[in-house]
Simulated assay, not measured.
Amino acid sequence: MTIAHDVTGHGPDVLMIHSTATDRRMWDPQIPALAEAGFRVTRADMRGFGDSPLPGTPWNDADDLAELFGDGPVAVIGSSGGGYVALEFAARWPARVPALVLLCAAFPWPKSPERKAFAEREDALLDAGDLDAAVELNVDTWLGPAAGDEQRAAVRVMQRRVFELQPPDQPEPEQIEIAFDPAAITARTLLISGAHDLPDFRDIADHLAGIIPGARHTALDWAGHFPGLERPDVINPLLIAFLRNP
């Protein structure tokens, strides 16, 4: 099955991978700017998100995304859980990825007290069947103070869709795990973190900046977990400048 995706623009390929609280719509503020800047942008819904239902058998997200591009080069941008998939993509096929941007990327990491409290509260709400409250918990947790009503509404819709496609009362879907080493990445790499995000993701960015050769970490004092949604006026020029830099 080909996962749901859309392609906009003409030029060098860019792949955008959404977080696990959203779907490919999270990149709506970036698509016109990147296309106008001369890039061919593909954004896809991973299985269990947006327009891509869960399959009946185990799968691997990086394999799904790699199939969209044959053997051609592609710059990769990933957010949160999609950032982890972007890491895997860039580490398993380093020659194919000239540039890598990770916005508040996930990575195996000891949970902070704040993240444990979030997970426990979300589990309690889902166990009680209160999906509305679970959605609001995610909106409040992941969006920083720069986000307005429009951004909060967008995340609310996307998170609700995640719960619809991955019902909390059903077993967690099985995925194929493939080991990879971030140190194998050869792409120019930019890591972005937010001061208003959970501390785990700032620590992850620091850690990855130390093991991915030549990686650069930019910490944003205004940002939460979704800086591309919160301040596209800042993030879009940053992405374009990095992608254009040879």
Results as ranks from 00 to 15, higher is better:
L126S: 08
P232K: 01
L208V: 07
A4E: 06
Q175H: 00
R121I: 10
A241Q: 09
D200V: 12
E67M: 13
V162H: 09
G144F: 13
T20V: 08
S193F: 10
A179V: 05
A223S: 12
L198R: 02
D23C: 13
T186Q: 04
S52T: 07
A187R: 14
Q175G: 11
A241T: 15
A21R: 12
P246R: 14
A133M: 02
S112L: 10
Q175S: 07
R160Y: 11
H5E: 06
G48Q: 05
A183R: 12
D6S: 15
F180E: 00
G78L: 05
T22Q: 05
A223E: 05
E120P: 00
S112D: 12
A4N: 12
R188D: 12
S52K: 02
P29V: 13
A105D: 02
A134I: 15
A91C: 02
K116D: 13
A119D: 06
H196K: 13
T57P: 12
R25L: 07
P108W: 09
K111R: 10
P167G: 15
A128M: 05
A62T: 13
R231Y: 06
I192V: 07
M16W: 06
L220H: 02
R40D: 09
P108V: 07
R40M: 03
G11F: 02
P171C: 15
A75N: 07
T189C: 03
F39Y: 10
G228A: 02
